[in-house]
Design a protein around this nucleic acid. Structure first.
Length: 418
DNA sequence: CCTCCACCGGAACGTGAGGAGT
DNA sequence: ACTCCTCACGTTCCGGTGGAGG
């Protein structure tokens, strides 16, 4: 008797996997939709590729190419183009017999002078410990390592703006490394999505690093469409996409300052949603759901990492919203905020400070704050919540300090006038 | 046309944490 | 171990202001 039921369960479990396996997946190769993937051909970036290549050819002749600064917002193909050219350059150098080496470093991960140098040295076969050595010794080691043979080295520093914040000594040192080298030659490519980051730079570094500048403009909707079409051919099975899917992804991403990365995310997530629903085709609705999901993920992440005071301010807006206020003024928010602070036993910040917190939340896209004049009734910021209440509230209450607020009802003093 | 509300937002300053230099 | 410096976060002070209502 027992054995029979067991057998039946096994069978149904087996059937479950079988079913999942047989349900035809929509994807052929999902990897090409991820950011880490470097495509073989890059559409709509011919100008940038050409100028980059024309600067870097001198490396193949054994000369030092000019240092380059590359600007562009997220998802404009900076990293993809740079890496792509790097690979091509190395390949070409190999076939020509000139030694060209391209090193790619992401400064977001490698964010101190020491780590950067240690990482570089290790790329050239030197054994440098993670920590412990004086920085100049690592620098010397690195110089020795590369100067052992005649070669041109190109260092790509992605997200270079992250490095600046920790002081630009490395950049200064690196930019004048060539004077100490006998055989090897070093050139740098800085990649940044902050157009103004050179303002904080030592002028000497600035002029040396920015010998050449290349700007990556955002894509428009049509260009994003082309990019998506190209990738979709590899990523998805034939006929798996409704014809409206790609234009819709492109349109959403174009609103987001032409971010191709966002577009690819949309395309991938839409597919994943369709797959989960056991559909064999990605439809318009899946893209809309994907847009929503990505947005919610973003908000959740931002809210989670907010300082407690900001969380309290945000929660005040949400409480007012729940009590029928569609848009609230700073005064009302502050009034509620104060009660919340008392209830959870936290310091009460001044109204001036809370104004700034609201502005920050505005910048983060969590609320929408506009200064309006209500004539006789003063001049104030009107604050509208621009995130879904329930999911945001859930995230807020993950913070143990806000726990006591669950179910707490602050007193509303101002009258609700519509 | 003037008033005056209810806040905006700039400036200067205070404080404590954390890093660099010595 | 010590000072010095920077930086983020907050406060205090205060001049400034768009427009409904008189």
């Amino acid at each position: 008797m027992d054995r029979v039921t067991l057998k039946m369960q096994n069978k149904s479990l087996d059937g479950l996997f079988q079913e999942l396996l047989e349900s035809e997946p929509i994807f052929m190769n999902k990897e090409v939709l991820r950011h880490s993937y470097t495509p073989d051909s890059l559409v709509h970036r011919d100008d940038q590729i050409n100028s980059l290549a024309s600067i870097l050819v001198s490396a193949l002749r054994g000369d030092t190419p000019s240092n380059i600064l590359i600007y562009g917002k997220t998802g404009t193909g900076k990293t993809a183009v740079t890496r792509h050219i790097g690979i091509e350059l190395e390949r070409k150098g190999e076939s020509l017999g000139t030694s060209c080496k391209v090193v790619y470093l992401n400064c977001e991960v490698i964010d101190t002078q020491y780590r950067l140098l240690a990482n570089l040295s290790r790329q050239f076969g030197e054994d440098v410990p993670m920590t412990g050595w004086p920085t100049d010794q690592v620098f010397a080691k690195f110089k020795d390592a590369i100067d052992s043979e005649k070669q041109v080295i190109i260092i790509i520093l992605d997200e270079i703006d992250k490095l600046i914040k920790k002081g630009d000594d490395v950049l200064y040192n690196l930019s004048r490394i060539n004077t100490d080298l006998e055989q090897a030659k070093v050139s740098m490519i800085g990649v940044s999505n902050d157009l103004k980051f050179t303002e904080f730079l030592d002028p000497r570094v600035k002029s040396s690093l920015g010998e050449e500048e290349i700007i990556f403009p955002p894509y428009d909707a049509d260009q994003i469409s082309d990019i998506l079409h190209e990738r979709a051919q590899i990523a998805y099975k034939e006929d798996a996409l409704d014809e409206l899917v790609i234009p819709l992804c492109a349109a959403f991403a174009a609103q987001e300052h032409g971010d191709a990365r966002r577009a690819l995310d949309l395309l991938r997530v839409a597919g994943e949603i369709a797959e989960r629903e056991n559909k064999s085709r990605v439809e318009e609705q899946h893209v809309k759901n994907a847009q929503e999901k990505i947005e919610i993920d973003r908000v959740v992440e931002v809210v989670r990492t907010l300082p407690t005071q900001s969380k309290l301010a945000l929660y005040s807006v949400m409480i007012l919203r729940n009590n029928g206020y569609r848009n609230v003024t700073t005064g009302e928010v502050y009034n509620v905020y104060r009660q919340l602070c008392i209830h959870v036993d936290m310091d009460i910040l001044t109204q001036r400070r809370v104004t700034d917190l609201m502005s920050e939340l505005d910048m983060l896209g969590i609320v929408n704050a506009v200064v309006v004049s209500k004539g006789r009734y003063g001049r104030t910021k009107e604050i509208v919540l621009s995130v879904p209440i329930t999911s945001t509230k859930k995230v807020l209450f993950e913070d143990y300090r806000l726990k006591p607020l669950d179910g707490f009802k602050p007193v509303m003093t101002t009258q609700l006038h519509l």
